[in-house]
Simulated scan of single mutants.
Amino acid sequence: MSTDAKPTDFSAARIHETAQQILTAGVLPAIVEAGHPVLRHEAAPFDGQLGEAELGQLIDLMRSVMHKAPGVGLAAPQLGIPLQLAVLEDQFEVDPEVAAARGREPLPFFAMLNPSYQPLGTAVAAFYEGCLSVSGLQAAVVRPESVRLDFTTPDGTRLQRDFTGWQARIVQHETDHLHGILYLDRAELRSISSNAEYSARWAQPDISHARQELGFLPDR
């Protein structure tokens, strides 16, 4: 998708300073909410703005924030740091029927730097998503069912991994964050629901009932 996101104007020094302020605060930082410009700029590629120890500390902190939220991914811009870094992990217990419908399997923790993804094949899937930076809402998003992720590990190794199902959705959602894209940019707008309405009506293994009742993704 094309995006109007402009590159962050944070210098390497300012990125370092911002990270240091968060790391030395002694408390878990708040998650930045939609409307903050840091979420709408393309984050800076990681290029040594943080030392090895600092990077490791930031990754550990981001993992703690993600667990507390709780969520399955967190990007550095969500802490106000415009750096192409995200952490991902999905170890939640999920109803077997839901897991089967969504292709949801546990995702072991990993951190990725400077990620990009490409669809594998033409298959797509639509499910409801939420976001830690968009409080109170859920919306259906059509995404490629499988993707190939190119990224750098914290130790500097460039890797390529393939993901499918819910893991692919998490990878795409978090990578998008680093390029100024929120899931609502890709969402079916007629599907947008409050958390309360989603829980009461649409928290089902798939979106078929919501699609019919709310009138999105109509049969063609």
Rank of each mutant, 00 (worst) to 15 (best):
A86N: 10
Y198L: 04
I181V: 15
L159W: 06
W166K: 05
Y198G: 12
V27D: 15
G136I: 08
A30L: 12
Q21K: 15
E97D: 14
Y128Q: 14
L61G: 01
L83F: 14
F127A: 13
C131H: 04
G180V: 01
A13E: 12
L182T: 05
G48D: 08
L120A: 08
S135W: 11
A75I: 09
L50P: 06
R63S: 11
S116Q: 10
A13P: 06
L214W: 04
V32Y: 05
P119L: 11
E197G: 00
A86G: 05
R104W: 01
F109M: 00
R211W: 04
R14L: 13
T3V: 12
E42N: 13
A99K: 10
H36R: 14
L39H: 08
T24W: 01
Q167P: 15
L149T: 02
L39Y: 03
H36S: 15
E93R: 10
L184Q: 08
G180R: 00
V124D: 14
H41T: 15
K6E: 12
L113W: 06
R186P: 09
E174H: 03
A100L: 12
V72R: 11
T152K: 07
I81R: 05
N195G: 05
I59K: 00
A13N: 09
G35C: 06
S193K: 06
S146A: 15
H177M: 15
L79P: 09
D60M: 02
A76I: 08
A203H: 03
Q57F: 01
D155C: 04
A126K: 04
E54P: 02
F110N: 04
A140N: 06
A12R: 09
I81P: 03
E188G: 02
T18C: 05
I207S: 07
L132N: 00
L149R: 09
V94E: 06
A123H: 14
P82C: 07
G80E: 13
A139D: 01
I181N: 10
T153M: 05
I181F: 02
V38L: 02
V124N: 13
S64N: 12
G71C: 11
S11Q: 00
P29I: 14
A44T: 14
F216L: 04
R40D: 00
I192T: 06
V147R: 13
P29R: 10
R186L: 12
T122S: 15
D47N: 11
R186T: 03
G156W: 03
R220A: 15
L58T: 00
D162E: 11
L61M: 13
L159E: 15
Y117M: 06
E174S: 02
G180C: 03
S191F: 10
S208G: 01
A30N: 12
H179F: 08
G103R: 05
D176W: 09
L28K: 14
A75C: 07
R220H: 10
F46Q: 04
T157S: 13
L137V: 05
E129M: 05
V87K: 11
A187Q: 04
R186A: 12
P108K: 04
P106M: 02
I170F: 03
V141A: 02
L58D: 02
M1K: 10
P119A: 09
F92A: 14
P82S: 07
A30D: 11
T175E: 13
F216M: 01
A210L: 07
T164Y: 03
L55E: 01
F10Q: 07
R14I: 02
G48W: 08
A86P: 00
L58E: 04
L23R: 00
S135G: 04
